[in-house]
């Protein structure tokens, strides 16, 4: 007697992004980085990364320079508040691609 499969008969979720949809659409304010002030960007070396540390969503990359994934960034502003050099400003979200601006 074989066991009946129970696969698919109970709630079983697999990992992946975007459970809440494109959470970037939640934003009213958007973080914009000024690489002229950003320490790793200026020094061209791994340094600081406080924005990466404190981002609740993990959408700031730990790279030189750090970049923000606007698809999921909720615009909380913690990165701007915590940046020690004021390299991140929260600007009004216009809905345009930041690269265009």
């Amino acid at each position: 007697m074989t066991n009946e499969a129970v696969t698919g008969k109970f709630s079983y979720s697999r990992p992946g992004p975007g459970d809440g949809g494109r959470t970037g659409s939640w934003r009213v304010l958007k973080p914009v980085m000024d690489y002229g002030r950003c320490t790793p960007a200026r020094k061209q070396t791994e340094a600081c990364f406080l924005c990466w540390l404190y981002c609740p969503e993990g959408v700031i990359s730990r790279e030189v320079p750090p970049t923000i994934d606007y698809e999921y960034c909720k615009g909380c502003g913690i990165c701007a508040e915590q940046c020690p050099t004021g390299a991140i400003q929260m600007v009004e979200e216009t809905g345009k691609d930041p690269k265009e601006e």
Partner: peptide, 8 residues
């Protein structure tokens, strides 16, 4: 993963 339902 990002894009989850936690508050901003």
């Amino acid at each position: 993963h990002p894009g989850n339902r936690a508050c901003s």
